[in-house]
Design a protein around this nucleic acid. Structure first.
Lengths: 245, 245
DNA sequence: TCACTTTAGTGCGTTATCGCACTAACTTAG
DNA sequence: CTAAGTTAGTGCGATAACGCACTAAAGTGA
């Protein structure tokens, strides 16, 4: 399924965009565009990974589901990265669910094709590893933030991470869904969102949230966002974040 | 610094022990035994990594330190793994501190030597990546556990993870130190430890804790421990955990 | 336009954890 | 053996988040 000119293809995914032309062309020939709907589950915990995904406009949430049904997000993947690192890390599966947090598109690639390209050991190989390192920082900081910070701060961090991976200022998201991601009560999200809204940082409309004051929000949240954002910029060498770097 | 027979060398680190003889011999020639003291800091946040460490009897804690001084552990490395994954992942530094949580020994290896061996792309390369995948699971589960579980459960998980990496049943550790790892109050640890002691799962002595009933402790804690333990066994193919696998 | 569904807001008692100040017990060095 | 230092235990008010039951508002479809 060949795709036309660069602009409309995988270059909208920053990871792919970082590839030199030769490797990009080779990788591109294995890419297939897919449309992803809100709530769609790409991987279930323990599933064998048949495809990896390079989101362009979609955002994917990595969730862990407890035995009792409680959930918590450990990280988020958007146009900055790739879903399915376990494939090249050697795991084949992960104990997480991957669910579409924001509808959009992504390029997918067959497991075998990815592994083959990875094994070549070129720029692609190194880029995937650096991305994984950045993702580790994100997950680590989620752990820290979960431990030490308030729901309001975490909501802020979460909004910023999502915003970085979107090309609009509005997230289509119910409080209930967000509460599943953050692993808190829905009412807790409602309350935290209201506090942020009172400070004119976001606008809260039924079924969606809009970021009004990006800079203000960055200043309002805990340092966790900046740590992650800086590390993405350092490792992946481009402005994933909208402001930093 | 050549080392004598296998038994007394890096084979006490499970990661090194998994190498086929040819690669092990090659790696071994770059290993240097070091003694690590409780509280010693191997990496400071942001430091360039000059060495990686393969613990044999030491345990190393990966800590994040907030601007206000609060700390939280994101993971732990012992004879199951390697400290310094950022080196081969391409980061060179990480935003974490690495501090000795349990005194003991480790083999260290120069950054360049590790990179050279990694670049060869053999079993060592794949093993390091699989280990990193396991560590990601550990960090992820820390995030989940921080979000959803009580201090008592987290203390239990933490004790089990440490116990897996020790060859004794006694951890030399003050409540104060543990509280820094878990990111909770010292009093919280005291209280949680007492509850576990009341159930005859551990014994609490000034300056140390002893695991009395390993199986009981496993049953008492949240599922987080088992998820991590199972994943280590699956990916690294040997009994890191004392019971599972 | 009227039921129905989805989403958000409210109230309230409960619980876990916190922060802090203090005491008690144990350990070690002189 | 005692003084000093370290580690652990206690008490208590404050706070953040929880669980639950309910209401209110916004969207949706016949």
């Amino acid at each position: 399924m060949p795709l036309d000119g660069k602009q409309n293809t995988g270059r909208k995914n920053f990871l792919l965009a970082s590839l030199p032309d030769v490797e990009f062309e080779r990788v591109q020939s294995h890419l297939e565009l897919t449309s992803l709907k809100l709530g769609q589950v790409l991987y279930e915990s323990g599933d064998r990974l048949d495809y990896v995904y390079f989101p362009t406009t979609a955002i994917i949430s990595l969730l862990y589901i407890m035995e009792n049904g409680a959930t918590a997000e450990i990280g988020v993947v958007g146009n900055d990265g790739i879903l399915g690192i376990a494939l090249f890390m050697g795991g084949d599966t992960t104990p997480n669910r991957a669910v579409i947090q924001s509808a959009g598109e992504a390029f997918r690639m067959k497991a075998k094709d990815l592994r083959d390209e990875f094994t070549l050991g070129g720029v692609f190989h190194n880029l995937l590893l650096r991305y994984t390192q950045a993702l580790i920082t994100q997950i680590s900081q989620t752990a820290v933030c979960n431990r030490l910070h308030s729901v309001e701060q975490q909501l802020g961090r979460w909004l910023l991470l999502s915003h970085d991976r979107l090309n609009t200022d509005t997230l289509v998201m119910t409080h209930d869904l967000i509460s599943n991601m953050l692993g808190v009560r829905r009412e807790g999200v409602t309350l935290a969102a209201r506090k942020l809204a009172e400070r004119k940082l976001i606008k809260n409309i039924r079924g969606s949230m809009t970021i009004l004051d990006r800079q203000g929000l960055e200043q309002a949240v805990c340092e966790c966002y900046k740590v992650v954002s800086d590390e993405y910029n350092r490792l992946l060498g481009r402005g994933i974040a909208r402001t930093f770097g």
